[in-house]
């Protein structure tokens, strides 16, 4: 009975990432893009035309990561103007900081926009309640992964709770379906004050492919202030970890 377990354990070895501040993703990973303005912008025009979520603006040239689904098709259309890097550090406190402009070399985090109470109360531990509001299960699985044996974000006191009563804030995924608008509001109200609000994934940031769908109701976001915007389709676990660590003041990058 014990031999098979020893075998599993031996093969398993050590899996956790020793330093969550020192992670480089695969070269192929499509993260933060770099834009380059050129004299001839016709290729960008065709890229903007094919973009499934209209995330690209030609004049002035910009790309909205809050809408971008990172399919990478625009970079194939206009390789001289758009290039995706493997940089996962895209979370920010301001929605407008997600709009990338030519020669931007990072997504500004805007530490000054973090409410002082957030770092004072949640700087050492942050318990979150996640609400999936028509998310397609991929962002949800990536959030689950932040606590798994590889990422082990729990080492910084960040966990997801079963009840909103036990949590310090809400993480929303998905474009927010009409049917989830009310449960989301009830859940948010059940979290004791003060609380944080995190929006995870491009679909949650902008509605993504479903921004104009009649089955979606995004009025919650119009009436609540968001503390952290995390783009991605889905957001990589490292994008979430990097953003939350910056929010808590555990790291002061960007």
């Amino acid at each position: 009975m014990i031999t098979p377990k020893i075998k599993v354990l031996r093969s398993h070895g050590i899996q956790y990432i020793p330093d969550l501040c020192d992670v480089t993703l695969s070269e192929e990973f499509r993260g933060r893009p770099i834009l380059t303005q050129t004299d001839d912008m016709t290729k960008v025009e065709s890229a903007a035309k094919i973009c499934p979520t209209k995330a690209i603006s030609v004049a002035p040239f910009s790309l909205d990561l809050g809408k971008c689904l990172f399919c990478g098709e625009c970079a194939l259309c206009a390789p001289e103007n758009i290039r995706f890097t493997n940089d996962f550090k895209m979370a920010t406190t301001k929605r407008e900081a997600l709009v990338i402009k030519p020669e931007d070399e990072r997504v500004e985090f805007h530490h000054e926009a973090v409410r002082p109470v957030v770092r004072k109360l949640f700087g050492k531990a942050l318990k979150l309640r996640q609400v999936s509001a028509a998310g397609d299960a991929s962002v949800e699985m990536e959030l689950n992964a932040t606590g798994n044996v590889n990422f082990d974000f729990g080492r910084y006191g960040v966990d997801f709770t079963a009840s909103p009563r036990h949590s310090d804030g809400v993480v929303i995924t998905g474009p927010i379906s009409k049917a989830m608008a009310e449960p989301l509001q009830i859940c948010y109200d059940a979290v004791p004050d003060p609380k944080v609000l995190i929006v995870c994934g491009s679909e949650a940031c902008s509605g993504g492919l479903y921004a104009d769908s009649k089955a979606v109701d995004r009025s919650f976001l119009a009436s609540h202030d968001v503390d952290l915007w995390i783009p991605g389709a889905p957001s990589h676990p490292m994008a979430f970890i990097d953003g939350v660590m910056n929010l808590m003041g555990l790291k002061h990058e960007r």
Binding site: I50, C71, A134, K178, E203, L209
Partner: peptide, 27 residues
């Protein structure tokens, strides 16, 4: 979880958009 996926398919001719819709049916 109803997002109106099927209606989104028939309301666009952008085949890249349709492909991404297909990828989002169940992540």
């Amino acid at each position: 979880q109803h997002r109106g996926v099927e209606k989104e398919f028939s309301s666009t001719d952008n085949r890249l958009r349709q492909t991404l819709l297909a990828e989002s049916i169940a992540g």
